[in-house]
């Protein structure tokens, strides 16, 4: 198969950047999207040119490292698929494919297609954890969790934190990400001790990091490679409003994690 890749090239965060066209020919339809960029990089490298920087890790669709906005859609046109699990057979022969980095003021471009997604890490650090006793492993099934509850929590926990929701949202809102992370722990007994602290801190850190507000376009859920349901945003609102109205934790000074540049 033959394609023309238009890829965003930007040397440094301060550079203006531009789309550069790279024709590729005789590509197997079973090649993955990232493997095609690898191929382009090999050609560039052999010519002594700068290779294209992009994020990736597991290439199995489970780590959340890969990103990219392909033809205007985070993780490309296939539903419920990460960029690394996207194959060239999903495109038509001769197609021009535009590849851009995630766009959000909270996610500045570091180089080419790599953006700084550490704001999501700081949201997790603010409250996306539970406290556990260390020592010997406890008995399995000592804590009973209704099956339905466990399944809902698991559905939320399938969020890989890739940030596609932010990239898809016209307001660069991180509501779906925060909703998934809050829900996952709020539904389980292990998440109860920090439940109110968690939602207050995570939601306020989200604002502090400069993400936009939800204005009900639901493009986040459309772009999500793990199909996190949109109804979790209402659950996040419910958790946060309850904490704000009655939580003793809301009277404590706000927690904003320190920026590490």
């Amino acid at each position: 198969m033959n394609f023309t890749f238009r890829i965003w090239r930007q040397r440094t965060a301060a550079d203006k950047g531009q789309l550069v066209a790279y024709p590729v020919s005789d590509i197997s339809s079973d090649l993955s999207f990232l493997e095609v960029i690898d191929t382009i990089n090999e050609t560039l490298s052999s010519r002594g040119e700068e290779t294209i920087a992009f994020d990736m890790d597991c290439r199995e669709g489970i780590c959340g490292a890969c990103s990219l906005v392909i033809n205007g859609q985070p993780h490309g046109p296939e539903k419920e698929t990460t960029t690394c699990q996207l194959y060239m057979r999903h495109f038509s022969d001769g197609e021009t494919i535009t590849v851009e980095p995630y766009r959000a003021d909270s996610f500045p471009v570091i180089r080419d297609l790599v953006v700084d997604r550490s704001p999501l890490e700081r949201i997790i650090q603010a409250g996306g954890y539970i406290s556990v006793h260390t020592g010997e492993a406890g008995d399995a099934n000592a804590t009973l969790i209704p099956k339905h509850q466990a399944e809902l929590a698991f559905e939320a926990a399938s969020c890989i934190g890739c940030g596609a929701c932010v990239a898809a949202c016209p307001n660069a809102s991180a509501m779906l990400f925060v909703a998934a992370k809050v829900t996952q722990l709020a539904l389980l007994p292990q998440g109860q001790p920090e439940r109110l602290h968690r939602v207050i801190r995570m939601a306020e850190t989200m604002d502090h990091e400069g993400f936009g507000n939800c204005s009900n376009h639901y493009l986040c859920a459309e772009a999500c490679p793990k199909e996190i349901p949109i109804s979790l945003i209402a659950r996040l609102n419910r958790e946060f409003l309850a904490a704000a109205l009655v939580g003793q934790e809301f009277l404590e000074p706000p927690h904003h994690s320190v920026h590490h540049e």
Binding site: V69, I70, Q73, R103
Partner: peptide, 12 residues
């Protein structure tokens, strides 16, 4: 303010 750079190609 949260999204000042637009995508060159809009998918949605």
């Amino acid at each position: 303010h949260a999204r000042r750079t637009r995508y060159q190609k809009s998918g949605f």
